[in-house]
Amino acid sequence: MTMHQSAGVSVDAMIEDLRKLVEVESPSRDVDALAASARAVAALVESRLGGRAVLVDSEAGPHVHWSGGGEPQVLVLGHHDTVFPLGTLARRPFTVEDGHATGPGVFDMLGGLVQAVHGLASLDDRSGVEILVTADEEVGSGSSRALIEERALACGAVLVFEGAADGGGLKTGRKGCGTFRVSVTGRASHAGLEPAAGVNALIEASHQVLRIAELGRPDIGTTVTPTVAAAGTLDNVVPAEATVVVDVRVESTAERERVESAFAALAPHLDGAEISVEGAVGRPPMPVEASAELFALAQRLLPGIEGSSVGGGSDGNFTAALGVPTLDGLGAVGGGAHADHEYLVIGAMAERANLVAGLVCAIRNAQEDERRSANGAP
């Protein structure tokens, strides 16, 4: 069976669709804003691909799910929430200038969504394709993970439209990542009259920070980085409470288990202090083996494209951990994710849209060949 792809995508149309999405601000955890954003994403999908895009309600906001019909074969995965608060658009409106599009979320990852939809629209046959656009990727995917995993297993291949790696490369591996919160409880006392009567939570937290920092193994890709700390109430009170937030990135399941066990084993240094730990490496590592098959297809479609492993996580971590072939970084070429200088390279939009169309065709053809072979067909 041969899948047909019609030629050409319109960059002007992609830019206009990108403008529509960017101008509906979609900060994570703002359910009302995300509801409006989900409606805009659904309208875009329906207008370009036909059919019906279903809004899947969740406590984090609506996810958007669309199916081209037929047996599921490939999942196009993205998210419509962004890290930018309401009002960012007024300060940094959508702008096209000097070959770049700028505005909140253009690179992470609204540009990737637009390119994916237009790439699929260039296909004569969209059967077997599903699109899932979630509302909570930037805050851990707590409400969407089960749905992501369900659809990934049903489809058997996942294309993730997060922004490209530096230089436009694909993301063939990702570190597992998580956040830990270490809470210290001491005992307050007057810092001048009887400091020894207290248990200084700040001093205890300082000991814990040094201990935690030693858990890092950068030589094998494990970083353990204390990022936020708070302690104390007044300058003449021995602090009774302190907290430390820690960012963790790992490349292997073994390191994930080691670090999680080490946090669980943290013990107080000072008599009378108490410690509690919350958190985990919530996104498992995405090993390069998970992307090898799909990356090879991409290299045949776009010779010279490179792949790299990166430190950030995505929903592709979840699908790869299930053993489902997953290729990431297929979205916008650009940079400045989560920053005011975020941008998308307009000149790369058509090539990336055509790449998704080619990958979908290649994946479906490969799956059809496997079925024919399994059935004994020549």
Rank of each mutant, 00 (worst) to 15 (best):
A188C: 12
D315Q: 06
A374R: 15
E370C: 14
G105L: 14
A332Q: 05
G99W: 13
G128W: 00
G99K: 13
V199L: 00
V259P: 06
K20N: 15
A290P: 07
A320V: 00
G221W: 02
G51Y: 01
C177Y: 05
G358E: 09
S67L: 03
T82N: 09
T95H: 13
G142V: 11
G313E: 11
D108Q: 04
A348V: 11
L77Q: 06
G335L: 08
G316Y: 07
G282T: 06
G176Q: 01
V114F: 11
E194S: 07
V106S: 02
D328L: 11
S122V: 12
G358A: 13
Q367R: 00
V24P: 08
A154I: 11
E46Y: 10
N317V: 03
A332F: 02
S37G: 06
N317S: 02
F94H: 08
A42E: 08
V139I: 14
H118P: 06
D340A: 15
A36N: 15
H79E: 12
S58Y: 01
A42R: 13
R352C: 10
A33S: 10
A262F: 13
Q115C: 06
P285N: 03
L77Y: 08
I203H: 05
D17T: 07
A292D: 13
E257N: 14
P62L: 10
E97I: 13
C177D: 09
D57H: 04
A60C: 11
L297V: 07
P239Q: 10
F94Q: 08
L266N: 13
G99H: 12
V9P: 12
V106W: 01
P378W: 11
V9H: 08
Y343N: 04
L294S: 09
